[in-house]
Design a protein around this nucleic acid. Structure first.
Lengths: 194, 194
DNA sequence: TGTACATCAGTGAACGCGCGTTCACTGATGTAC
DNA sequence: TGTACATCAGTGAACGCGCGTTCACTGATGTAC
């Protein structure tokens, strides 16, 4: 009997390559990911990725774009269901931890084509979901329009990267969602005695 | 007349190599820095860095250690002079921007020997200067000892990395010190109406 | 003060490696008539 | 329904490259006596 014959055409290679890339990036980081390793995992030849993505930065551009889209969707959902800007931050941290590879690529723009149109659009969409709830809740405290958004983004982004880099004690980082919520509430709810 | 004769022994090669590495990292990032390029800039042979650092991660370990020491010193000074934990955060952001190469290496532990003893000591020293002022000012608001430190670190770290990655609009990022101070005050001073 | 010698710092050529990309190609698919 | 042909998707071998590290070496320094 013939072994299960692999068809010449894959059918879904683009998706398969992206998934393989995510796997590799989770193991070695985005900078050390190689197209050859990705091809190996996808079970295709070296040259196959070029066909779908043009070059290596092209593949990473696709991943970053996908990442920003997923992030925007996650933040939008948090806004809708919870209507609380701390929860949007919590959603941001959750996204970073559950999509580590995407997240790491997104914030290494030197690795991809930062001027790609679809990428820029997805970036903008994600940013708005951070800026708007923050401005709604903190806008009255400042004359600098963008500051609330920057503050929220900084806090969520900083916490996410510190956890991902292993800079916090392991037990602290374990229940990341609860930690994120406490941190948000701590800075936002408690007026300080000075 | 003989051209100014370069002596066989450099005299200060270790320092020179570290400085060259900083230069290269500022241009291409820590992951793409190569020992050969560093050697070229320092004007020595390929093999010279090995002699001082053992291997490539060894050089980056030295750079990370130096970075944590410089950071600890900067934070200590901020505490002493200003006694205000927002200002410690501002000092953190200033450090990141003025020592970009060191900062980028410090938070890419996959590139260096993360178990190096001197490195660990300098990390701990820097962390304390962030945790202590935050705990002093926010400690009463929470039963989780470490949360205030994590909050302060997250905020400062997030803002610094967003600026370094070019994620904020250029004009916003220009006066980074003032921005950092406003962001800190915004979250810390203004009680919210909820 | 002079000399022998161990140690240290740096050389430069060579190694083997994995990589991104190119190229001529082939197998499969889909569309026009 | 059948056939011709353009287009698309993937192959696999080859290219040239820069890299980290090793190695036997040499020049300079410092120390013991």
């Amino acid at each position: 009997m013939a072994a299960a014959r692999r068809p010449y055409h894959h059918g879904n290679l683009r998706r398969t390559l992206l998934d393989a890339a995510v796997e590799v990036i989770e193991e070695v980081g985005p900078a050390q990911m190689s197209l050859r390793e990705v091809s190996r995992r996808a079970g295709v030849s070296n040259a196959a990725p070029t066909h779908h993505f043009g070059d290596k930065p092209g593949l990473l551009t696709a991943l970053a774009t996908e990442g920003y889209r997923l992030l925007a969707a996650a933040l939008a959902q948090a806004r809708q269901h919870l209507d609380d800007f701390v929860e949007v931050g919590v959603a941001y941290v959750n996204f970073a931890l559950s999509h580590r590879a995407h997240f790491e690529v997104m914030f290494r723009p030197e690795l991809y084509h930062r001027d790609d149109r679809e990428l820029l659009a997805s970036q903008r969409a994600a940013a708005e979901h951070l800026y708007e709830p923050a401005a709604a809740q903190l806008g009255e405290s400042t004359s600098h329009r963008r500051d609330p958004g920057i503050a929220a983004w900084s806090l969520a982004h900083g916490l996410a990267t510190l956890i991902l880099n292993g800079n916090l004690e392991p037990d602290t980082a374990k229940d990341a969602e609860r930690l994120a919520r406490r941190i948000g509430r701590l800075l936002v709810d408690h007026p300080l005695q000075r």
